[in-house]
Computed example of a mutant assay.
Amino acid sequence: MSESGDRPEPVWLVAANVVAWRRCGTGGQELRPGTKSFKGGAKVYVAHVYWGPGGERVTVIGRERHTSRWIAIDTATRHLHSFRPKLVHTPRALERLSEAGHLHGFGEDYAGTASATLETYARQYRAKIAPSSPHPDRCLCHACLTGESAHPKRVPDTR
């Protein structure tokens, strides 16, 4: 925080977006929009990464799905995409970051390295969700929408 107390000092964090649709359920055949806490496409800031288990979970700060309040929550890396370094100036985000105990953020160089690593992990974890089950035609999961991975097996759409 600055000496005057009116504006917190900006910090470098890793910004990301929540996937629009995620696969879940038996065999990964069920699709759900966003996550329980965030709408699909919502911008979140990564406040902390748990590197020990391979970056599988991260602490993020963003606007909650229903109330639009700023929250800090742990979420799976596979539910995020488009990781990038970002200098955060938003006072409410910085306040929530301070309350979560991560006010220091990342350094600019480290945020760039971490964002590239997290993008790689997120792709790997999304690919592991039901790898042997086919995707339906017109699948809306993140991997299909972005062409992230080729899915040779398709199930005919019965809609």
Rank of each mutant, 00 (worst) to 15 (best):
R138P: 04
S133C: 01
A116D: 09
K128W: 05
S133P: 02
H142M: 08
A116P: 07
H142P: 08
Y125V: 05
C144M: 13
C144I: 08
A122F: 02
S133V: 01
P136R: 12
R138C: 05
Y125F: 06
H135S: 09
H142I: 13
T117A: 11
I129F: 01
A116G: 10
C144P: 15
T146W: 13
I129V: 08
P134D: 01
P131S: 12
L140D: 15
R123N: 12
A127E: 12
T146Y: 09
A116F: 07
L145T: 14
T146E: 15
T146R: 15
S132W: 04
C141G: 07
Y121W: 11
L118Q: 03
H135D: 08
P136E: 12
Y125G: 02
R123W: 00
C139L: 14
P134Y: 00
C139I: 05
P131E: 13
T117H: 12
I129N: 00
Q124K: 07
A122Y: 00
A130S: 07
P134S: 09
S132M: 08
L118W: 01
T117V: 09
L118F: 01
K128Y: 01
R126D: 08
T117N: 06
R126V: 03
R138K: 15
A143S: 15
T146G: 15
S132F: 08
C139W: 10
T117K: 15
K128V: 01
E119P: 00
Q124R: 10
T120L: 01
R138F: 14
P134C: 00
A127K: 05
C144S: 15
Y121T: 14
C141I: 11
P131T: 05
A143I: 05
R123A: 15
L140W: 10
E119A: 07
H135Y: 07
A130C: 03
C139P: 02
E119L: 09
Y125W: 02
T120H: 07
I129D: 10
H142D: 13
Y121K: 11
P136N: 12
L140Y: 03
T146I: 09
R138D: 14
R126Y: 06
L145H: 12
A116N: 06
Y121I: 15
C144Q: 15
D137N: 08
E119H: 06
L145K: 11
S132V: 01
I129E: 13
T117Y: 07
Q124Y: 03
